[in-house]
Write a protein that binds this DNA or RNA. Structure first.
Lengths: 336, 336
DNA sequence: CGAACGGATTGAAACAATTCAATCCGGCGG
DNA sequence: CCGCCGGATTGAATTGTTTCAATCCGTTCG
């Protein structure tokens, strides 16, 4: 494959001039430039990103490590991040940790080797042990959908306590007195905050924590939701409402209930979380807590760029907290 | 940041030995190895992927360029490809062309600069002009969800003509005599093949092409489906069934009809394509043509690896065609 | 007329790894 | 005792780019 030297020889100039034609064309005389461009075209020259990376010390790629791209919520985050990254001339490498700390650690190692210019990450656990280790590499990172545990990094999150309160407050005010909470892995901050918000809403209505029946789940997809739905059906007495930690779970629960002939919302009301596009198209359109996912991706990428481009050390870590919004649809209503 | 030389100095060995410790540990005496590993740990050394890439001539990243990650169908393809790639110790860089040829060209250029070891691509157009240009770089690529136009590359596809026939054959045999086809960009092969299959199914039932009413759409997402649904409502006479080029469109159409009080399937039957996870969870569970997306991703990655690892030129390009499968649910039924 | 200037171009250093021919060294056979 | 063998280690070459001090050359100013 032709290199810059071949181009230089072909055009009868030095390698420095070829480099200038590519990177600062205005600094080269028009006819020299034309000669070089002709040589580039003729030889089919493509500059090697690895060589320039080597020189620059870092790549022009931003990493995005999310829990699961099967969840449209994360796809939206990716969209937002990608847009910002491209505006800055950067590529985005999207990876799934699948909520596994081992995968997460492996990917973070990969990112360090790649000398990515930064990482946007939704940590797979609350403690963030992997990130603590990662911080040694001096590669900037921004927490996404998670509040910063320390002042070591920027973070963009949505107020999950408020989201939980919105969801369960809505159910309580519709008359429900016993609410199931289909949660996810307990080490996920989001899950805990939403529970806390739910409990706060119950407390406000004079209900104790026993009014929230937790149905744990180790994953956060539709299949896990179906499982949870089956378990919900076995509960006696059965709660009249379900708050799901995300929409995928909610859709799974909905399918389960539907299959068992339990009517939604007449028999059981459901509220999801994220307001993914498919929530509105569900069997019974899903009431959900909308998160500004695209904005979150954008902001996270912007914070990362600010930190990465910060030459004079003036960057101060910031935590941005966005507000969720309740979207009421058919799946939630008063109990019988 | 510490380099291999720093490690060598710290451990009192040469750089060659450090390299051996990392890449061929068995070729180094245990105590030397231990000393080097200690130095690596102490200095927090992380090897530079760009430097090794530069030497190796190509990166250990496989690119995947799809139309839209917002479509769960492509997410499944990505899952399959990712699994295979990781088994081979490769990373995957997932990108969206958004059906735009400009974006596609831009990304292909990026991949060439990155010297990726190969590209899995769902071309944004039928002619594949971008790929023709890309072939100059001698970077292997595999067409995904598309038959090979030439013998220049491998390809993995699903028999879309058969898929169209399955879908419309099902509708016709249920008694429908006029079917709308909510299509997508006309330069997409998949769209054309599905139409062809649809026409074949109609012909088999003695119906001419006028029985297929095309409702074109320039995108393939839920919003476009809602638009198409609105246009469908305006047709007189209104077809009694709709075949949608993918499930996102079908969900959009479903929402539109639902909002207008048109009952599915009593007034209008709907058949989608892809059988994404959300199709089963829709307002009216969607009849759809299932594509083996994960398998397609896996096979495409395998073909790519075979071509990329082929040192002695023994690789022969292959086209794999997988079979779709009709999944009947509530959204399709006999007309009134 | 010489010096200073400025724009275009050059060429070598630096980046961080891998690789391989050369070297070193201890043990063994002749 | 010498030479050879083989495994461990070394150190220099190589990869393709960017950058920057140095050079070159034509112009203008004093």
């Amino acid at each position: 494959m032709a290199g810059i030297k071949d181009v230089a020889r072909q055009a009868g100039v030095s390698v420095g001039t070829v480099s200038n034609v590519i990177n600062r064309p205005e600094a080269v005389l028009p006819d020299t430039r034309a000669r070089v461009l002709a040589a580039i075209e003729e030889l089919g020259y493509v500059r090697s990103e690895s060589a320039r990376q080597l020189r620059a010390g870092r790549s022009r790629i931003m990493a995005l490590l999310v829990l699961d791209m099967g969840n449209p919520f994360f796809v939206d985050i990716a969209r937002g991040a990608e847009r910002t990254a491209r505006e800055a001339g950067l590529g985005v490498m999207v990876c799934n940790s699948g909520q596994s700390q081992e995968e997460e650690a492996e990917y973070l190692g990969l990112f360090a080797e790649q000398r990515v210019c930064g990482v946007l990450v939704t940590p797979a656990d609350a403690t963030g042990g992997n990130l603590e280790a990662f911080a040694r590499h001096r590669i900037p990172y921004v927490l996404v959908d998670r509040v910063a545990a320390s002042t070591e990094s920027c973070a963009v999150s949505v107020d999950d306590v408020r989201g939980g309160t919105l969801a369960v407050g809505h159910l309580v005010s519709a008359g429900h007195r016993s609410v199931a909470y289909v949660s996810g892995p307990g080490d996920l901050h989001q899950i805990r905050d939403r529970r806390e918000g739910a409990l706060a809403a119950l407390a406000e209505a004079g209900l104790g924590p026993e009014a929230l029946v937790e149905i744990p789940s180790d994953r956060l997809d539709v299949a896990a939701g179906r499982d949870a739905g089956a378990r919900l059906l076995g509960l006696v007495p059965r709660p009249t409402a379900v708050f799901c930690a995300n929409d995928l779970l909610a859709l799974g629960v909905l399918q389960s209930l539907y299959a068992a002939g339990v009517r939604v919302p007449q028999d059981v009301a459901i509220v999801g979380y994220d307001d993914i596009e498919f929530a509105a198209a569900a069997a019974v359109p899903l009431t959900s807590v909308r998160q500004p996912a695209v904005v979150m991706g954008r902001m996270a990428a912007e914070l990362l760029l600010e930190e990465a481009d910060d030459a004079n050390g003036s960057h101060r870590h910031r935590s941005v907290v966005l507000q969720p919004e309740l979207v009421v649809r058919a799946s939630s209503a008063a109990p019988r």
